[in-house]
Computed example of a mutant assay.
Amino acid sequence: MFLKQLQYLREIERHRSFSKAAAACGVSQPALSRAVRQLEDELGIVIIDRKKKVFGITDDGARVLKWAHDILRGVSELRNEVSVTKRAIAGIVRIGVIPTAVHIVPLLLDAAQERCGDFASEVHALPNGSIIEKLVSKELDIGIMYYDQCPQAKAFQVRTLYAEQQVLAASGAFELPEGDDIGWEAASRLPLALLTREMRCRQLVDVGFQTAGVEPMIRLETNSLELIHAQVMTGKVATILPISSFPLRVPPPGRLRLRRLPGFSPGAVGVVRLSEHAAPEFASDVWDSVMKTSLQDDLDLLCKPVTAPRRKR
Rank of each mutant, 00 (worst) to 15 (best):
L3W: 07
L6T: 08
L9Y: 06
E13N: 14
R14N: 11
S19A: 14
Q29S: 12
P30F: 10
L32Q: 09
S33H: 13
Q38E: 15
D41Q: 15
D41Y: 12
E42P: 06
E42Y: 15
G44V: 07
V46E: 15
V46C: 14
V46T: 15
I47H: 09
K52M: 09
V54W: 02
F55W: 05
R63H: 09
A68G: 06
H69R: 14
A90Q: 06
I95T: 06
V105F: 04
P106C: 05
L107D: 14
E114P: 03
C116E: 04
G117E: 00
F119A: 05
A120Y: 09
V123F: 05
S130I: 09
S130V: 10
I131D: 07
K138H: 15
E139M: 10
L140P: 11
L140M: 12
I142T: 12
Y146N: 13
D148N: 13
Q149W: 03
Q149F: 09
C150A: 14
P151D: 08
Q152C: 08
Q152W: 02
A153P: 00
K154R: 12
T160A: 15
Y162Q: 04
A163S: 14
Q166S: 14
A170V: 01
G172K: 02
A173F: 03
A173L: 00
G179A: 00
D180S: 05
A186D: 13
R189Y: 02
L190H: 03
M199C: 02
M199F: 04
V205E: 06
V207N: 06
G208C: 03
F209V: 04
Q210C: 04
T211N: 11
E215A: 11
M217Y: 12
M217N: 15
E221Q: 13
T222W: 09
N223Q: 15
L225E: 13
M233A: 14
K236E: 15
A238L: 03
P242Y: 06
S245C: 12
P247I: 12
L256M: 11
L261V: 08
S265C: 03
V269G: 02
L274T: 07
F282N: 00
F282E: 00
W287P: 04
V290H: 03
V290G: 00
M291F: 01
L295F: 04
V306M: 05
A308N: 03
R311Q: 07
